[in-house]
Design a protein around this nucleic acid. Structure first.
Lengths: 219, 219
DNA sequence: GTTCAGAAATGAATGTGATTCGAATATCAT
DNA sequence: ATGATATTCGAATCACATTCATTTCTGAAC
């Protein structure tokens, strides 16, 4: 009948929270610095100041740890975008700004470049962590009559993959960075806004977002 | 001054051709059966009937071998699509049929499912091996006034990533297979054809392509 | 047909690093 | 303070990808 409900957070819970954060932080630094493959679990454990085996009581595998790192990164970016866009009037512009900022960040930030090689994983993390914002924006813009999106989830899904693919192509010099505006225009076309409006939307001036802070908390 | 120009293909050249093909074939079967990671180089070497070290005189690494397998797969599919589409009248339909067939194949064929996890690699292989066809189709349809594509390469690049991402999502039950038509419609929107025309194009009946033959030659 | 230099193939040995697991330690209710 | 339980530790394991010293094959020259 009576469940144990800890009245207060004990040392164990506190240490576990600290360890999990420290591991994500350490992994984020090492993985984004030298790439996921080149980061060894031992190195990460040492940097987080835990034993090598302990990592595995927090994350089932290296892959799972990498996913946690990506989620962390995506969450940060979504929040930083959100800080800026809630002043925009045009809901279509909110979405357009979001995807353009992701593209700029992914191609401009050294930390991101290292991670693009796991594109299916990073796209999925983006879908999940930024989706709540992006899908909301797509719907809002549709309700305002700016977009015509019948399945916002699907459009966002396709967009994440195309976006990460484009970022990867730019990073590998397969596509010149000058094509970024064109890329955003094409992706905006998927919202049914029409080509001319997409061109206009993609060329509006953009404010800066705040600087990256390192690994923040992700609940 | 005088280069050695072998008048006739000697045993060495013949064996090398045979080994390369056998390796790709063996790798294709094992990798697409159990996934790239689960396939060991020793297993592949044995199946191809060469020594473990010999693989490395044909492919610098396991990754390079995997890429060769993907290229092989993509080339096959491109050719099989080509067989059917050269009877179509509407150039826009040729393109639409192509991307729909890729989506169906990638989600329907067990061999493909295993490979989707390397999506950045498979998208790139698709870009290179099917690009010559797809980009040509995009341009033809644009010249015929059906599409309005200013940068066919870019549209194809974005489409490959979105397509593979969508296939992966369907395979992992994140998107229901019934959404395939919607996916194709959205991707067609990137050609500037307009939403209504895209819907119509995506819903035309499609002929069957020929059956997969196993690993064919790729020059 | 024999010989020989170089090319190609071989597979046992190496090295790396993810993961496991039994021992050691810390926690906390009593 | 004590013992049952949960957590951490890190040395040992293990699975491969890759290397390289050795052997085998090839084909031109005689």
């Amino acid at each position: 009948m009576s469940e144990k409900i800890p009245v207060k957070e004990g040392r164990v819970a506190r240490r576990q929270r600290r360890n999990r954060q420290a591991l994500i932080q350490a992994a984020r630094e090492i993985m984004s610095g030298r790439g996921v493959d080149a980061a060894t679990m031992l190195e990460i454990a040492e940097k987080a100041d835990v034993g090598a085996g302990t990592v595995y009581s927090y994350f089932k595998s290296k892959d799972e740890l990498a996913i946690a790192v990506l989620e962390n990164l995506m969450h940060d970016l979504a929040v930083r975008i959100e800080e800026v866009t809630d002043t925009f009037d045009d809901p279509a512009q909110v979405y357009a700004f979001g995807i353009r900022t992701v593209l700029d960040t992914a191609t401009g930030d050294t930390h991101w470049k290292q991670l693009l090689h796991r594109s299916e994983v990073i796209s999925d993390a983006m879908f999940r962590m930024m989706g709540p914002f992006a899908i909301r924006d797509l719907r809002r813009a549709s309700q305002a009559g700016r977009f015509q999106v019948s399945d916002a989830e699907l459009v966002w899904r396709l967009t994440t993959h195309a976006l990460i693919g484009a970022a990867l192509a730019i990073t590998n010099d397969k596509v010149p960075p000058g094509n970024k505006r064109q890329i955003i225009t094409q992706l905006l076309c998927m919202t049914g806004i029409g080509n001319d409006a997409a061109v206009e939307l993609a060329s509006r001036p953009r404010p800066k977002i705040s600087r990256e802070q390192g690994a923040g908390a992700v609940e």
